[in-house]
Design a protein around this nucleic acid. Structure first.
Lengths: 210, 210
DNA sequence: GTTAAAAAGTGGTCAGACCACTTTTTTGAT
DNA sequence: ATCAAAAAAGTGGTCTGACCACTTTTTAAC
């Protein structure tokens, strides 16, 4: 599984080396980085390779470049953004539990919102899941939760959820078992009736069975 | 305010042109993109510039490159990631409400977790806020919420919150008013005692007054 | 028709050049 | 000695050409 990741990504290595350089040199936010030519020499790579790495970090908002002035470490509040990303992008998956748990935060909130909103909890889409459960005997777990998230109408939360769900995919993107079928039915029914507490209980039970 | 953003970012223009090219050519996920040399010619720029743009998109996970094979549009689930980012990176802030609301999702969840966990709700840090409120008459709203998020121990949720809070900063990074003082005290006290419902009620009231 | 070799295509990297802009240093007039 | 203008150095921005390693396609031989 790790064969591919460790293979060879010279380009990413430069990014990592740059991060290391920033850490070792204790370069603070707003301070200047070594010039491209100096970096090229110190890292033993061509200037164009350095630029490719720098350009990536710039798009991420980690650094800022001023034509003729130099390259500077971006303001701190932008770093936070990068940290979130790098956790995924750089495969820093030392906290899979956090990913799962954070995903569930959004799912629970969506269930609450829908249960408390007449217009949302009476949507015909929920009945469609009942039909599917009856006919096919199972539903795709991810589909159910995605629909829940979509229904709330919070685009940002939806996208964050997509992101989290993508990295927790194996346990999510599958068909429900017979055991889960009953739990999901209970959850959806409670939601439709506006029983927030019962819907959440069923959800917790669902996640607990996985 | 927009003077700087529109100035000149030739590098970002290429990224945009690539996005446009992908859209116009209807290139689907997994399909091949034109080669670097072809792109260089079609866009009227040097190959190194094209590569800088491609490398950025690669770090974002939008594209995949195979040595000797070509450049391919990444799988869809990776796109979602990019969308979240671009919402911030490309300053596409057409949904400030969503940012605020999503931020509050995490804050509410943190309050729930703390209220239900003996070890967390009896932490001495909460008392320190009472002291500060008495002596100085006010606390920094952001500080309170940050401490709440930190306490839960979910690093990922914390970082997402930092990100969201940074873009909703003005209304958050300020001292509490006299009116808020009482509400915050109520919220913290309820949390300490494990009264989840009351703590959340106070929180909702707090956010409602802003 | 199959297979092996050759060719073409493509990404990966480097080196050098030139331009535009900024910062620093030097110069010269007061 | 001071200050302003000019020159120099430093730096990012971009392009070109070259070579290598790898993959895909084409060709040639059987």
């Amino acid at each position: 599984m790790d064969k591919q990741t460790e293979q060879k990504k010279v380009f990413l290595e430069i990014v990592q080396q740059l991060r290391q350089l920033i850490r070792l040199e204790k370069i603070q936010a707003g301070e200047k980085l070594p010039s491209e030519r100096v970096l090229s020499e110190r890292l033993g790579v061509g200037r164009s390779s350095v630029r490719e790495a720098l350009r990536s970090l710039e798009l991420l908002g980690l650094i800022e470049t001023r034509h003729g002035g130099g390259t500077f470490l971006a303001a701190t509040h932008k770093h936070q953004l990068v940290e979130v990303l790098s956790m995924f992008i750089l495969e820093d998956e030392k906290s899979k539990k956090d990913v799962e748990y954070t995903r569930q935060i959004h799912e629970k909130e969506a269930i609450r919102v829908i249960s408390c909103t007449e217009i949302l909890r009476t949507l015909p889409v929920w009945d469609s899941f009942f039909v599917k459960l009856e006919i096919e005997g199972a539903v795709n777990c991810r589909d159910v939760l995605r629909e829940v998230l979509i229904t709330t109408g919070n685009r940002l939360a939806l996208k964050i959820w997509f992101q989290l769900a993508a990295y927790d995919g194996d346990r999510l993107n599958r068909n429900s078992t017979d055991e889960e079928k009953i739990i999901i039915q209970t959850m959806l029914k409670s939601m439709q009736l506006g029983y927030e507490k019962e819907a959440l209980q069923a959800y917790e039970q669902w996640m607990g069975t996985v």
